[in-house]
Computed example of a mutant assay.
Amino acid sequence: MQFGITFEKLLLIGLIAVLLVGPERLPRYAESVAKLARRAGEFLRDTKSRVRDEMGPEIDDVDWRKLDPRQYDPRRIIRDALFEDDASPGPARADAVVAEPAVKPVSTPRVRPEFSMSSPPPYDPEAT
């Protein structure tokens, strides 16, 4: 990830910080920034070792690129969810092997119940 900060911009920010803080307080602020950076590094190392301890040796087998949310295409996810029983209408993916069943099941049409003014509609007491 790039933030668009070049070396010149960092130098300018540092110069402005030196002018605002002043030469007498600058060593204290530099020390506190160094402590903050050190604590952040320790936190990252501790977190990394904790994750490694909790996941165990399987952590090396995880494909982290597969879990990257930027790779997901919402259109494909919705299409796969809608057509999960049927064959996908789009082009076949190279990584998916679809085996066609030898005999296609015969689908029976659903019979809709007929309602009239004399018969009450179905009622589910647990749904309300």
Rank of each mutant, 00 (worst) to 15 (best):
4 G>I: 04
72 Y>I: 15
24 E>Y: 03
79 R>I: 07
33 V>F: 10
63 D>T: 09
60 D>F: 08
128 T>G: 08
75 R>N: 12
61 D>T: 12
96 A>P: 00
103 V>D: 10
117 M>T: 07
83 F>T: 14
77 I>T: 05
8 E>S: 15
8 E>W: 04
62 V>P: 05
30 A>Q: 11
71 Q>D: 04
14 G>F: 03
70 R>K: 14
88 S>Y: 05
89 P>L: 00
83 F>S: 04
92 A>P: 07
17 A>S: 07
34 A>P: 01
128 T>N: 11
60 D>M: 02
69 P>K: 05
92 A>W: 01
58 E>C: 06
75 R>G: 02
56 G>L: 00
91 P>H: 02
62 V>C: 05
97 V>F: 03
15 L>A: 14
110 R>A: 13
63 D>L: 01
119 S>L: 11
33 V>N: 06
117 M>Y: 05
42 E>P: 00
111 V>R: 08
52 R>K: 11
97 V>C: 00
91 P>E: 10
111 V>W: 01
48 K>R: 12
110 R>S: 03
128 T>W: 06
4 G>R: 06
84 E>L: 07
10 L>G: 13
98 V>N: 02
77 I>P: 01
108 T>Q: 14
71 Q>L: 09
67 L>S: 05
2 Q>R: 13
97 V>G: 00
58 E>H: 03
105 P>I: 09
58 E>R: 10
12 L>F: 10
2 Q>D: 12
41 G>C: 08
8 E>H: 10
39 R>M: 07
104 K>Q: 13
68 D>R: 08
69 P>W: 08
92 A>E: 05
115 F>V: 07
118 S>D: 14
15 L>M: 13
86 D>C: 12
35 K>W: 04
71 Q>T: 12
77 I>F: 06
122 P>C: 05
48 K>S: 08
58 E>Q: 10
69 P>S: 05
118 S>W: 11
4 G>H: 09
39 R>W: 12
65 R>L: 11
